[in-house]
Amino acid sequence: MKCMLIILTATAISFATGKGEVLGKNETFASHICSKFFYRQNEPMGLSQQNSARICQMYDYNGVISPYFASLYDRDRRMPLYSAYVFKTVGKGKRPKKWMIEPQLAFANLTKCMAGEGVVPDRKQLITSQAVNDDYKKLDPRYNRGHLNPRGHQNTTESRRATFTLTNIVPQTVISNGKWALYESSIVNISKYYQCSEIFLVTGVIPTKINPNERVNIPSHMWSAYCCVDQNGMPIRNGAALISNTVTPILQNLSLQDLESMLHKVPFFANYIQIFYNRCKKLI
């Protein structure tokens, strides 16, 4: 059955807290259909904020509704804090011209699938709840749309299209975006060299202070961590990377432990950071 648009009454207007693609305030990804995008079905610890929303990124492709990745979205900054996904292979194909939004961030009982902005009946509520296309069109030309889950890490038309939601991108400088592509390409080589059966990735950002003059927060850094496993789901290798979001970006390849230590020092996050279950360590 295709995703259906439910017409709202005035009493239904509220931020999304119901069942569907956007999880309830007290829900986690544990035992959720989108838990499969996390190593051992465990979401990261220490990254969630008081007003963040967990999104199971659902997409309707020719009437078939499927989850494609998971995101943690900062409602206050109108940006994702991370996206978690499973690397497939090198993806090719045309870039979609249209970007989607998350209807349930605006109204809990709208379609559970990412969709165009037109599905939200109240424009004011839409722009209050999340970033919209106009926000990115008005960005300083030094910035473009930086994917957390890149289309190049997906291997089907539908999975690549699903990455084109505004809840999966942040403002990233053009130069930083170009250098970050080097890290994304390295995942392909890691997969081949270590013969990974699957690679679980969590890619996120380090937010900056809320600027009332900015609709969408511009992060200071982007980071990513990977966990490569064999056909039995046992860890083979892990690693991470960090890049500054500037016009003179520095790309650092890090150990998973070093990345977690760096995030631990960021006041925005909790005192304890763990991106993967058991830190993706080999079981003895």
Score class of each variant (00 low, 15 high):
A12D: 14
S14C: 10
L23V: 07
G24A: 12
H32R: 05
E43V: 07
N51M: 12
A53T: 14
Q57D: 06
M58N: 06
M58F: 08
D60I: 14
D60L: 11
I65V: 11
A70C: 06
R78E: 09
M79P: 13
L81Q: 05
K88R: 12
T89L: 09
V90Q: 13
G91V: 03
K97V: 11
E102D: 09
E102H: 08
E102R: 03
P103T: 00
L105D: 04
F107C: 15
F107D: 14
A108L: 03
A108V: 00
N109Y: 11
C113K: 04
M114P: 02
S129I: 04
N133S: 12
K137E: 11
K138E: 15
H147G: 03
R151H: 13
H153C: 01
N177G: 04
A181G: 14
L182A: 11
I187K: 03
Y194C: 08
Q195C: 11
S197N: 12
I199C: 02
V205M: 04
V205K: 02
I206V: 14
I210P: 00
E214I: 04
R215V: 06
R215S: 12
C227E: 06
V229C: 01
G233L: 02
I236R: 14
G239K: 09
A240N: 07
L242S: 02
S244I: 00
T248S: 11
P249W: 09
N253W: 14
Q257D: 11
D258E: 13
F269L: 06
A270R: 09
F276A: 04
Y277G: 01
R279W: 09
C280N: 06
